[in-house]
């Protein structure tokens, strides 16, 4: 098995599996987050957060998710390093844009930028919710008020909101290539499905980018009032 993972296709197999897993996670994440703008009282979102924090299935998935992130991130550097080494002398004149999309050629750059965002994001929310719950705002009933934690950050600072929009857009661009690419690598593609998978991938990328962008926008524009 470890030998398989070191082959060129094995390396990508691991990226695809973890990638698709993260694709599913991000869909769930966005669905819950959209409760932020569905219900201005924050009750629905708090319930969602509560569910995510206590549900046993989610509890099991949490470390697996962490592992998925780790593998996807660290493995990408190894994979790109291997690929980079396959061309010791570089071209003097390149016109790669004529044959491939920018996103497809810069998945590592996009991924690294998303990683920067991810680290900030974890410090902002996950860390507080998980390890410092006593510092969190409380609802009238004395329960942890995740809604206020999130909403107040977006209400307070425009820079913050813009940072989150940028994060969502970068992730969308990453997915615009990553989604269909994962299927291709797993061999789950043929001449009929190529265009369909690419279309669904683009659509998903747009949903993710727009979905994660409208949440900070909603608060920045004061639509919660």
């Amino acid at each position: 098995m470890s030998k398989f993972l070191m082959t060129s296709i094995g390396r990508k197999f691991l990226m695809s599996i973890t990638g698709l897993f993260l694709v599913m996670f991000i869909g769930v994440h966005l669905t819950i987050n959209l409760l932020l703008i569905v219900d201005n009282s924050g009750e629905l979102f708090n319930q969602g957060a509560e569910f995510m924090a206590t549900n046993p299935l989610i509890k099991i998935m949490e470390p697996i998710l962490g592992l998925g992130f780790m593998i996807h991130i660290f493995w990408s550097f190894f994979l790109e390093y291997k690929n980079w080494k396959a061309r010791p002398v570089k071209y003097a004149a390149k016109n790669m844009g004529a044959s491939s999309s920018w996103a497809s050629r810069n998945m590592l750059v996009l991924g690294a930028l998303v990683l920067v965002f991810l680290v900030m994001h974890i410090i902002d929310f996950f860390w507080v919710i998980k390890f410092n719950p006593h510092t969190m705002p409380k609802t009238a009933e004395g329960l942890e008020d995740t809604y206020t934690l999130v909403a107040s950050l977006f209400k307070e600072s425009i820079v913050y909101g813009l940072f989150y929009i940028l994060g969502g857009v970068l992730l969308g661009i990453h997915l615009s290539h990553g989604f269909w690419s994962a299927f291709q690598t797993l061999g789950l593609n043929n001449k009929n499905w190529l265009k369909r998978l690419q279309f669904v991938g683009k659509l998903y990328a747009i949903v993710i980018a727009v979905g994660f962008s409208i949440i900070p926008l909603y608060f920045m524009l004061g639509l919660y009032k």
Binding site: S8, I9, R11, K12, L79, K82, N83, W84, K85, A86, R87, M96, A98, S99, S100, S101, S104, R105, M107, H177, W180, S181, Q184, T185
Partner: peptide, 15 residues
């Protein structure tokens, strides 16, 4: 032989 891995950019098909 030292070829790299495919990242599905599609440049090969286009060229």
């Amino acid at each position: 032989l030292g070829f790299g891995g495919c990242t599905n950019t599609g440049a090969c098909e286009a060229e």
